[in-house]
Measured scan of single mutants.
Amino acid sequence: ALNRGDKVRIKRTESYWYGDVGTVASVEKSGILYPVIVRFDRVNYNGFSGSASGVNTNNFAENELELVQAAA
Protein backbone atom coordinates (compact mmCIF):
# COMPACT_ATOMS: atom_id res chain seq x y z
CA ALA A 1 0.00 0.00 0.00
CA LEU A 2 1.08 3.55 -0.62
CA ASN A 3 1.85 5.96 2.19
CA ARG A 4 2.04 9.71 2.64
CA GLY A 5 5.36 11.02 1.34
CA ASP A 6 5.93 8.20 -1.15
CA LYS A 7 7.13 9.26 -4.60
CA VAL A 8 4.93 7.75 -7.30
CA ARG A 9 4.87 7.74 -11.10
CA ILE A 10 1.51 8.29 -12.78
CA LYS A 11 0.31 5.52 -15.10
CA ARG A 12 -3.11 6.98 -16.04
CA THR A 13 -2.52 7.71 -19.72
CA GLU A 14 -5.12 10.47 -20.04
CA SER A 15 -3.72 12.37 -17.08
CA TYR A 16 -1.88 15.65 -17.65
CA TRP A 17 0.82 14.28 -15.37
CA TYR A 18 1.15 10.90 -17.12
CA GLY A 19 4.71 9.63 -16.59
CA ASP A 20 5.44 12.35 -14.06
CA VAL A 21 6.50 11.70 -10.50
CA GLY A 22 4.49 13.20 -7.66
CA THR A 23 4.38 12.90 -3.89
CA VAL A 24 1.54 11.18 -2.06
CA ALA A 25 -0.19 13.87 0.00
CA SER A 26 -2.70 11.57 1.65
CA VAL A 27 -4.47 8.25 1.27
CA GLU A 28 -8.21 8.05 2.01
CA LYS A 29 -9.28 4.95 3.91
CA SER A 30 -13.02 5.34 3.32
CA GLY A 31 -13.22 3.11 0.27
CA ILE A 32 -13.62 5.80 -2.40
CA LEU A 33 -12.65 5.01 -5.99
CA TYR A 34 -9.61 7.31 -6.21
CA PRO A 35 -8.27 7.42 -2.65
CA VAL A 36 -4.69 8.57 -3.24
CA ILE A 37 -4.08 12.32 -3.43
CA VAL A 38 -0.84 13.09 -5.27
CA ARG A 39 0.90 16.48 -5.25
CA PHE A 40 3.07 17.62 -8.16
CA ASP A 41 5.82 20.17 -8.60
CA ARG A 42 4.25 21.65 -11.73
CA VAL A 43 0.71 22.87 -12.12
CA ASN A 44 -1.54 21.66 -14.94
CA TYR A 45 -2.95 23.76 -17.77
CA ASN A 46 -5.37 25.55 -15.44
CA GLY A 47 -2.57 27.87 -14.38
CA PHE A 48 0.85 29.18 -15.24
CA SER A 49 4.01 27.79 -13.76
CA GLY A 50 4.88 29.61 -10.58
CA SER A 51 1.29 30.79 -10.14
CA ALA A 52 -1.02 29.50 -7.46
CA SER A 53 -4.00 29.42 -9.80
CA GLY A 54 -3.28 26.02 -11.33
CA VAL A 55 -4.07 22.65 -9.88
CA ASN A 56 -1.15 20.65 -8.54
CA THR A 57 -2.94 17.83 -6.76
CA ASN A 58 -5.06 15.04 -8.15
CA ASN A 59 -6.76 11.88 -6.92
CA PHE A 60 -5.70 8.51 -8.30
CA ALA A 61 -6.43 4.87 -7.65
CA GLU A 62 -3.50 2.82 -6.31
CA ASN A 63 -3.36 0.77 -9.51
CA GLU A 64 -2.69 3.95 -11.51
CA LEU A 65 0.45 4.65 -9.51
CA GLU A 66 3.88 3.07 -9.55
CA LEU A 67 6.03 3.47 -6.45
CA VAL A 68 9.32 5.16 -7.32
CA GLN A 69 10.68 5.83 -3.85
CA ALA A 70 9.11 4.99 -0.49
CA ALA A 71 8.99 7.69 2.15
CA ALA A 72 11.90 7.51 4.56
Results as ranks from 00 to 15, higher is better:
55 V>I: 12
31 G>C: 14
33 L>F: 09
47 G>P: 15
36 V>W: 03
40 F>H: 02
64 E>M: 02
11 K>C: 12
29 K>V: 12
34 Y>I: 04
14 E>Y: 05
2 L>S: 04
2 L>Q: 01
40 F>C: 13
57 T>A: 09
53 S>C: 15
20 D>R: 03
8 V>T: 00
27 V>D: 03
15 S>K: 02
54 G>T: 04
10 I>Q: 01
10 I>W: 00
46 N>Q: 10
34 Y>T: 07
56 N>I: 07
61 A>W: 04
28 E>R: 08
15 S>V: 03
12 R>A: 11
2 L>T: 03
42 R>F: 04
67 L>D: 00
40 F>E: 01
45 Y>F: 13
58 N>C: 15
55 V>H: 07
40 F>V: 03
35 P>H: 07
60 F>I: 00
3 N>Y: 08
29 K>E: 13
36 V>S: 00
54 G>N: 03
11 K>Y: 03
25 A>K: 07
4 R>N: 10
71 A>L: 08
66 E>A: 07
21 V>T: 08
34 Y>D: 06
67 L>E: 01
70 A>P: 12
68 V>F: 04
22 G>W: 08
30 S>F: 11
45 Y>A: 15
12 R>E: 06
38 V>Y: 00
50 G>L: 03
32 I>W: 08
32 I>V: 11
35 P>I: 11
34 Y>K: 10
44 N>Y: 15
43 V>L: 09
21 V>C: 10
67 L>P: 03
70 A>R: 13
70 A>K: 14
23 T>D: 05
6 D>N: 02
46 N>K: 02
26 S>W: 09
50 G>F: 04
44 N>M: 14
36 V>E: 00
41 D>K: 05
52 A>Y: 07
49 S>C: 15
66 E>P: 02
17 W>S: 00
14 E>R: 04
29 K>P: 12
6 D>C: 11
46 N>M: 06
62 E>S: 08
11 K>R: 09
41 D>M: 05
51 S>L: 07
13 T>R: 10
32 I>G: 14
19 G>H: 05
22 G>A: 02
60 F>W: 01
39 R>D: 06
49 S>A: 12
42 R>P: 13
59 N>I: 06
14 E>M: 06
68 V>G: 00
28 E>S: 10
68 V>K: 02
18 Y>H: 06
56 N>P: 03
69 Q>G: 08
30 S>Q: 11
57 T>W: 12
29 K>W: 10
46 N>F: 09
33 L>G: 13
32 I>S: 12
26 S>G: 12
3 N>M: 12
70 A>C: 14
18 Y>D: 03
60 F>N: 01
15 S>A: 01
3 N>R: 13
22 G>T: 02
33 L>I: 08
40 F>M: 03
24 V>T: 02
56 N>H: 05
22 G>E: 02
5 G>M: 01
26 S>I: 07
8 V>S: 01
11 K>P: 00
33 L>E: 14
50 G>P: 12
7 K>S: 08
21 V>I: 11
43 V>N: 07
69 Q>R: 08
22 G>V: 02
6 D>A: 06
43 V>F: 15
42 R>M: 05
36 V>P: 00
67 L>N: 02
44 N>H: 07
24 V>K: 01
12 R>V: 06
65 L>R: 05
70 A>N: 07
29 K>H: 13
51 S>T: 13
21 V>A: 01
19 G>M: 12
43 V>I: 12
23 T>S: 05
39 R>I: 14
8 V>W: 00
33 L>Y: 06
16 Y>F: 14
28 E>W: 03
28 E>K: 11
64 E>H: 02
22 G>K: 00
20 D>E: 08
52 A>D: 13
23 T>L: 07
37 I>V: 13
58 N>I: 08
68 V>P: 01
35 P>V: 11
51 S>I: 09
71 A>H: 12
32 I>Y: 08
68 V>E: 03
31 G>D: 13
40 F>T: 02
47 G>R: 01
41 D>I: 07
48 F>L: 14
3 N>W: 04
26 S>R: 12
31 G>P: 09
2 L>M: 08
36 V>R: 00
35 P>C: 13
28 E>D: 12
15 S>Y: 00
5 G>Q: 02
37 I>Q: 11
6 D>G: 01
48 F>T: 15
7 K>R: 10
38 V>P: 02
4 R>E: 14
72 A>H: 10
46 N>D: 15
66 E>L: 06
45 Y>R: 15
67 L>G: 01
26 S>C: 14
34 Y>V: 04
12 R>C: 09
28 E>Q: 11
18 Y>K: 01
29 K>G: 13
31 G>K: 09
40 F>A: 02
6 D>L: 03
30 S>Y: 08
37 I>F: 08
43 V>G: 06
48 F>P: 15
1 A>Q: 11
72 A>D: 12
47 G>A: 06
36 V>C: 07
43 V>W: 15
59 N>M: 10
67 L>K: 06
9 R>T: 07
60 F>E: 03
24 V>M: 00
61 A>Y: 10
72 A>C: 14
23 T>G: 00
1 A>D: 10
63 N>P: 07
65 L>I: 04
51 S>C: 15
14 E>G: 09
28 E>L: 13
19 G>I: 05
70 A>S: 12
39 R>V: 13
39 R>G: 06
55 V>N: 06
36 V>M: 02
21 V>P: 00
1 A>W: 09
39 R>N: 06
62 E>M: 10
57 T>I: 10
15 S>H: 01
3 N>Q: 13
41 D>A: 06
31 G>T: 12
8 V>M: 00
66 E>M: 06
65 L>K: 00
70 A>D: 10
59 N>K: 06
54 G>M: 04
38 V>N: 00
10 I>D: 03
24 V>W: 00
14 E>W: 08
70 A>E: 10
18 Y>C: 11
6 D>S: 03
37 I>A: 06
45 Y>W: 08
26 S>N: 12
57 T>C: 13
13 T>F: 11
18 Y>E: 03
47 G>F: 05
47 G>L: 03
19 G>T: 04
61 A>C: 15
54 G>Y: 04
45 Y>N: 15
69 Q>H: 08
67 L>W: 05
43 V>D: 14
31 G>Y: 10
67 L>I: 09
22 G>F: 03
24 V>N: 00
10 I>G: 00
38 V>A: 00
14 E>K: 05
54 G>Q: 05
20 D>I: 06
2 L>N: 02
41 D>T: 09
29 K>L: 13
52 A>E: 13
2 L>K: 02
19 G>D: 09
42 R>V: 13
64 E>P: 01
67 L>M: 06
36 V>H: 01
50 G>D: 14
36 V>F: 08
17 W>A: 01
28 E>H: 07
42 R>A: 10
7 K>P: 02
36 V>N: 02
16 Y>T: 02
55 V>G: 04
60 F>G: 01
15 S>D: 11
18 Y>L: 02
44 N>L: 12
63 N>S: 14
2 L>A: 10
64 E>T: 02
10 I>L: 15
10 I>H: 02
15 S>C: 13
35 P>F: 13
37 I>G: 04
20 D>K: 05
13 T>Q: 09
48 F>K: 07
42 R>K: 14
28 E>F: 08
30 S>M: 09
18 Y>T: 04
47 G>S: 09
64 E>V: 02
50 G>N: 08
9 R>L: 11
59 N>V: 06
32 I>H: 11
61 A>L: 07
37 I>P: 00
20 D>A: 05
13 T>Y: 08
67 L>R: 04
1 A>G: 12
68 V>T: 04
16 Y>A: 05
39 R>Q: 13
68 V>S: 02
21 V>K: 02
72 A>F: 08
31 G>V: 10
22 G>I: 03
4 R>K: 13
72 A>Y: 08
36 V>Y: 10
8 V>E: 01
